[in-house]
Amino acid sequence: MALDHLSTSWSVFQALFLEAMPFLLIGVALATMARHWLPSGPVLQCLPDHPLLGPLTGAAMGFALPACECGNVPVARQLLASGSPLPTAMGFLFAAPVLNPIVLASTWAAFPDQLWLLWARPAAGLAMALVVASLLRLQQDNAILAPNLLRERGFHRPADAGSLLERSAGLIGSPSPGPVPLPSAGRGKSWRLSVLHGMDELVKLSSLLILGCGVAALLQTTLPRDWLLVVGQAPTLSVLALMLLAVVISVCSSVDAFLALGFASQVTPGALLAFLMLGPVIDLKSLGLYGTVFCRSAMVFVALACGMLTLLAGQWTNVLML
């Protein structure tokens, strides 16, 4: 029986990894091209830093650059490393997995008769991106970003953009004290550096993807989904159960609507929305990838904030629709 568990977990792991790898590759390729062509620094710094306009701009970029959660993390990281304001990059990071044409089309294909879901999903995703980005904006960069990213970002920010602490610590504009993968390729630099930098980034993210897929696969074969769906009609418990399911199952946001279709009739409308809202932003597979953007405490904060907002959205949906 233990061998059955192990071999089934191994199969699910392979399925998750092989299915996610192309999306990660697309994301890193986009980030590498952005790194090579984007005029890092001045132009990206002109993107809005406003708590509302910033995330909206990021969300609009997500609509034009469709990627699921595996692909958009490297792109968002590259935006931050190139000096983009935090609200815009966060808006992209949290809204792009939901607010993109592929995800909206798959939601419509899966739920053509539930029109409320077609607007509620993007609206809730956008609202969550706005709130989380605004909350993160209240913090200094060095309180939320991963140290390596902070150093890369320091190269592209004007010296007066950082906090006093950052400047006195020499984080802005100073040479890297630790191992930095590669100096920024930037405009006019050779393709060779871009290719090597992209390769290093892809390798690092792939290793994190492997860990995430491993945990998700193990939990999938040990945690019976019936336990989660037993509470399907309880207003609060159903939302919490589907949030947990979304985190564990780690399925790509471009197809999660078809999966949700499988239990749509067994759960409350709020739980359904919660599954479609939280899964694209927080799941076990992508938590490792977030480690390249956020420091540990910020990751916990983001996970909790997204969880709380999803619970709230699910509850209100149930209040209005049950």
Partner: peptide, 25 residues
């Protein structure tokens, strides 16, 4: 490892952990 160890999962085990499929569509 992926090349050397092909997927030989138990469909029964997977099925026991999942709710019945919805067949709409």
């Amino acid at each position: 490892l992926i090349v050397l160890a092909p997927p030989r999962g138990s469909f029964s085990m997977l099925a026991r952990h999942r709710p019945p499929a919805q067949l709409d569509g």
